[in-house]
Write a protein that binds this DNA or RNA. Structure first.
Length: 270
DNA sequence: TTTTTTTTTGACCTTACATCA
DNA sequence: GTTGATGTAAGGTCAAAAAAA
């Protein structure tokens, strides 16, 4: 039984660094992956095969093109728009069935072994995922050579690597959007609170102005200084408050607004 | 332990865009 | 400059598998 779940989930934060720095259609007849040629035994168990693959992969620089990118693999590079996948009118289910067959063959699972259940979806192994993740950290896109090399080193088809990267980019972006959204939400809440507080302060000041005697005896409830160059309201000389957190009445409240609110909190966008 | 629900993820489709001959 | 072929990014979707309830 294959239970290889690992938390390779996307982890994004408000302050993560910018660390990141795509076939012919599936050749369904081309079922011999390099894994097969490496591990030709037909009755080898999939686990044994994975262990050996793992051993083999140790020390492989997945971003380095292997010395010989064989012509068959090159021909196997596909794009999502490859003519056969989108024009030939293949039914999805047919393709998936065929792909599965191919995948399992490349993972060392024979057809006889899987029999009727050959429609099972491929699940990348822990090591394959880890290597893909590592590679993604270095480059979130792959040129054809990198894709080919990575596919070869992982025993996958270039198309699979391509798809993995496409999904990874999409899901990273989605996750980042959620983070951005959460940040904006908190920002909005703080602004709302600050606005409410300032309104209240204005009301109090107006009330005081109506009674001049009292007004003259009062110390200013708020001491604000204005930056002459940028014309932003800055903190008073003794203020220790920072950020948009609400402060009690009578204390200075400042919220320096950077030009780009993401600048110090989120990754720079391209 | 079994069943149901939710989440994850591999794969695909479509559209838009860029590049090249 | 135009056109067709090709490749990729991005957004959306589906569905199998795994995890959680």
């Amino acid at each position: 039984m294959m239970v290889e779940k690992e938390d390779l989930g996307l982890s994004l934060s408000l302050s993560f660094p910018e660390n990141n720095k795509k076939s012919s259609p599936f050749n369904l007849m081309h079922k011999n992956s390099w894994t097969d040629s490496l591990f030709p035994s037909s009755d080898r168990s999939s686990e044994t095969c994975r262990v050996e693959t793992r051993t083999f992969l140790k020390g492989i620089d997945v971003n380095r093109l292997p010395e010989t990118a064989d012509a068959d693999e090159e021909a196997g590079v596909s794009s999502p728009n490859s003519t056969i996948s989108s024009v030939s009118g293949n039914k999805r289910s047919e393709r998936e069935a065929n792909n599965c067959e191919e995948n399992e063959t490349s993972r060392g699972i024979s057809d006889e072994e899987d029999g009727e259940t050959s429609k099972k979806k491929l699940r990348l192994s822990k090591d394959q995922s880890a290597i893909l993740e590592e590679s993604f950290k270095e480059h979130n896109t792959l040129n054809p050579k990198q894709k080919l090399a990575l596919a070869k080193s992982l025993g996958l088809r270039p198309r699979q690597v391509e798809v993995w990267f496409q999904n990874r980019r999409a899901r990273t972006k989605l996750k980042q959007t959620e983070v951005d959204c959460e940040f904006l939400k908190r920002w909005y809440e703080n602004l709302t609170e600050e606005n409410r507080r300032l309104h209240k302060e204005v009301q109090e000041l107006r009330a005081l102005k109506l009674s001049p005697q009292l007004y003259m005896q009062m110390t200013p409830p708020t001491t604000l200084t204005m930056c002459p160059s940028c014309e932003r309201v800055g903190p008073p000389p003794n203020s220790s408050s920072s950020g948009p957190t609400p402060t009690p009445m009578g204390q200075a409240q400042t919220r320096p607004m950077p030009f780009n609110i993401w600048a110090n909190t989120l990754h720079p966008r391209s």
